[in-house]
Amino acid sequence: MNLLYEMFPMALGIATPIIITALGGLFSERSGVVNIALEGIMLVGAFVGATVSVLTADALGALTPWVSILAGMVAGCLYSWIHAYASIALKADQTISGTALNMLSTGLTIYLCQLIFKGQRTPTFTENFTRISIPVLKDIPVIGKLFFSDLYPTFYIALFLVLVTWFVVFKTKFGLHLRSCGEYPQASASMGIKVEKMRYIGVLTSGALGGLSGGIMVLTTNIQFSVLAIHGVGFIAMACLIFGKWKPFGCLAAGVFFGFSQTLSKYSGFIPGLKSLPSEFFYCIPYILTIIALILFARKSVGPKASGEIYDSGKR
């Protein structure tokens, strides 16, 4: 039981950026645009968040990590505008556009890192997120130790965003319009809905959440930024979106699942029966489980019908 109490907070910390990025993908795909640039957007958000943290630590003190993730959020939104413009205004292939942004983010962040810090890494953070325990709630038997003790405050941001996303997408007029654009864009346009505008909002929201999660990831699980800071989490988040059937609470459950799969690689040596296996095997587990989840659930998970399709106002 003690091992579970140790693993659970770490798993939730790892799951946080996965959940937030998956929610970003949900907004984009529900509007009809596939955003496989989430990995690159996270990397840009992580770089900007880390840079702001290093440059403002002395002036802002304890507020530094909060300001930094907001900066990462803005950067992710601006960076995703390239994908939005290419895929919506220029009607470019969404897969190629997203792939280009992923490739561009690597070279861009390395170049800017060398330009600002004279190297391929930022200096070590002096101000980043620390784990907290919530008074009173942490003393609740079992649940207190799992959900309210020794957790990063950013996990509660992820929970809040899940609730907000569910309400906005499924309980508001805006959400209805957004979903209609991802299902039947021509029919939506005939009802007076501005499809291109809704798709821009979906992609930019996706970028903002991706940049936010990138900033959160680098300021919780790292002590400095490098080009390997994200290491495939954006793609895992896309698998999480499919696994969660394009629904906020599904993304939450899938994100926690993938968080545990990564945590298992760190605690495998303490679990009886797993000690004899090589450590490299456990580092592969998150990605193996991602492939298995896609094989098992991708066929059953039906996404928005018009997701990935270029919107043509003349098509009927």
Rank of each mutant, 00 (worst) to 15 (best):
Y5V: 01
Y5K: 04
M7L: 07
M7N: 05
M7Y: 00
G13N: 04
I14M: 07
A15S: 07
T16I: 00
I18L: 05
I18E: 07
I19P: 03
I20W: 08
G24A: 04
G25A: 03
E29G: 07
R30P: 00
V34F: 02
L38F: 03
E39G: 01
I41A: 06
F47N: 00
V48E: 15
T51D: 13
V52P: 05
S53E: 09
A57R: 11
G61A: 04
T64C: 08
I69V: 12
V74K: 09
A84I: 12
A84S: 13
Y85R: 11
Y85V: 14
A86Y: 02
I88M: 14
A89F: 15
K91N: 15
T95W: 13
S97L: 12
G98P: 01
T99R: 04
T99A: 10
A100R: 02
L101M: 14
N102E: 08
L104W: 11
S105R: 11
T109S: 09
C113I: 07
L115H: 11
I116F: 11
K118Q: 14
G119F: 03
Q120M: 01
Q120H: 13
R121L: 09
T124F: 07
T126G: 07
N128M: 11
F129G: 08
T130G: 00
R131K: 10
R131N: 06
P135S: 02
L137I: 01
L137Y: 01
I140F: 11
P141Y: 08
I143M: 05
K145P: 05
L146C: 01
F147M: 08
S149K: 05
D150S: 13
L151W: 01
P153Q: 07
P153D: 07
Y156T: 06
A158E: 03
A158C: 02
L161Q: 05
F167A: 07
V168W: 13
V168S: 12
K171S: 02
T172K: 13
R179Y: 03
S180N: 10
Y184N: 12
Q186D: 13
S190T: 15
K194D: 15
E196V: 15
R199I: 08
V203S: 02
S213A: 02
I216S: 03
I216A: 05
I216G: 04
T221W: 03
Q224W: 09
S226H: 06
V227M: 12
L228V: 04
A229P: 10
I230C: 05
V233Y: 11
V233A: 09
F235A: 06
I236M: 00
I236P: 04
K245C: 11
C251E: 13
C251I: 11
L252I: 05
A253L: 11
G255C: 13
G259D: 06
F260A: 14
S261Q: 10
S261K: 10
Q262N: 10
S265Q: 09
Y267V: 09
S268L: 15
S276P: 06
S276R: 06
L277W: 08
C284Q: 15
A293N: 13
L296D: 03
R299H: 01
K300Q: 14
G303S: 13
A306H: 01
S307L: 06
E309N: 10
R316M: 06
